[in-house]
Design a protein around this nucleic acid. Sequence first.
DNA 1: CATACTCTGGCAATCGATTACGCCGTCACC
DNA 2: GGTGACGGCGTAATCGATTGCCAGAGTATG
Lengths: 342, 342
Amino acid sequence: MADRPTPTTIRDVADRAGVSTATVSRVLAGVGNARPDTVAAVRAAAGELGYRPSGVARSLRMQRTRTLGLIVTDIQNPFFPELVLAADVAARTAGYSILLGSAAYDESRTMHYLDLMVDRRVDGLIIASSQISAEGLRWLVASPVPVVILNAEPGGALATITSDNVGGMAMIVTHLLSLGHRRIAYIRGRPSFTADVPRLEGFRRTVSAAGIPERDAPELEGDGQVSGGEAAVATLLATRPDVTAIACYNDVTAIGVLRGLRTAGLRVPGDVSVVGCDDIDAASWVAPALTTAAQEKAAMGRLAVERIAAVLDDPDHAGPPRATMLPMTLRLRESAGPAPVG
Amino acid sequence: MADRPTPTTIRDVADRAGVSTATVSRVLAGVGNARPDTVAAVRAAAGELGYRPSGVARSLRMQRTRTLGLIVTDIQNPFFPELVLAADVAARTAGYSILLGSAAYDESRTMHYLDLMVDRRVDGLIIASSQISAEGLRWLVASPVPVVILNAEPGGALATITSDNVGGMAMIVTHLLSLGHRRIAYIRGRPSFTADVPRLEGFRRTVSAAGIPERDAPELEGDGQVSGGEAAVATLLATRPDVTAIACYNDVTAIGVLRGLRTAGLRVPGDVSVVGCDDIDAASWVAPALTTAAQEKAAMGRLAVERIAAVLDDPDHAGPPRATMLPMTLRLRESAGPAPVG
DNA sequence: CATACTCTGGCAATCGATTACGCCGTCACC
DNA sequence: GGTGACGGCGTAATCGATTGCCAGAGTATG
């Protein structure tokens, strides 16, 4: 803790170098003309004093903070750290920093962060929140700063970057079908999750196109977390022990399913196949390793930052497509195998 | 991204309410006296205009940002999100926000964040960085703001909050011994990780106290990540296939070991027992679930924030113990079992 | 030698809040 | 009715940077 000396200001540097604060500012910013000896004097003074300009004062004067707000649903879901890291890297190369908020599945926390970030005068906002209320949406549309929403349904008034959730889920369910499964359960996230509906739709479309009757494609509710997957699979086993494959809203849910199945003494993929969605790191950590559809998490984070930075650095930006869709990729691992015979 | 109107300032509110900015400031802050009708007028004006005070201007004036910098080694290691979340919650209740930086195992990025955070005038710094160079340490000691370091060795000039790494590792190795293991390998993190040395020491002390000869307690180097664990176990199998148990620097390494063992066709814990350290969420996701020693991650994050907030809110704070040690707890799961006979 | 132009660099305004200071008016008490 | 206390609120300084404008010195040109 120690003493806390007043940080050196531009005035201290100016005095020491024998010039005005204006000159210090110009020299350090490298704008305008200055005699070489003046430059040297200023640089020396700044160096000796260990001068670091106050970002606060600069932000006030420049009316920009070079900070981007990023709100995620749940930093503990491994999906998000990867996205956050990519966003952070992209932000740094574009000269921005990230102010992070984790909503922890709580809509009121989302709103709290939104207010906080606007108070802090972030230059832009990235919302990677699974759920966003109507109130929140209105707020965002009226936001004083540029906003990008990740994994929301495109088409609204806001810029979006979205994985092809319908296609991704369709792809992986198609994979299950090709393995011979004909009774496939789907464990949803929470209905309020923005990606829940499209993924569910990808599932429904695919099974119905394959001629699977609705009753052989039961749907259960989860919560996007391990416990939800575990609970859902317990219910499923009690009501439809005849399903041979389970598709899940996300990998974390699938990991819960794996656990539940193991507790019940069922083998994966021998008795039941399981697939997830997202391709988080842990998908390849568990045994059996999860077959899943990969989202381009890093690209999402990077693109979101780049898009906002582009608008910010060029105010009359022509505006690239407001809605971007990222493809998903099938990752074949061990948790899905041929349907058991009989 | 729509129009970007100038945010309303205190002056706008003052004009609309027909008072001075001083009065607006006082009314909104609830200090001083004001006539009820003045209060009402100000509140109304602020409400109608949707006024939100500029945190930037306030920070400049107050010389405090109510922001805490938090630097973690690697946001992708599940150990950290849990800590970050706890810190964030504690910060919010204390009226602070968290500016996060992930060093991604790169010392230069740590320094970059340190500079950035000081430029942004954070009120305090929390370093949850596995590795910190001598240069970084000097920097921190001279820091203009209070600093707390997590999981560094206590005793330096800086405040620390540390898990009992020696004791934790000793506890879990003792557990292995009690299961009958007599040839136990240890897979380290990187030697530069601050927790690597104490954990290694916990291992060495315990095996040697049990009379295990050094040659039956081989040590390998890892990197604290899955790949390091996987690589180390490959080496181990080639050189010392007779070990019956493997203790790891952390859970992520242990998960890598689990993978390597499975690839090699060995069964856990039938052929080899594996233990980790940290107790991340994923420790109970994998199969077999990891036996490990749990760090109090949430308490760490919370305490770090509370300690800094205490100093900040009471400048002549008596100063609680500069070094806190948190106990670790044994979590018995499935990955460690009796040593195979023979 | 005078005029014009280019370099340098200082002065002062500005960003949006907070707050010390002091003025004015009202009320109470003697 | 005079005076002191106090409530209510405005004026202006301040935080630390950036930048438009301008002055003075120096140089070039006619």
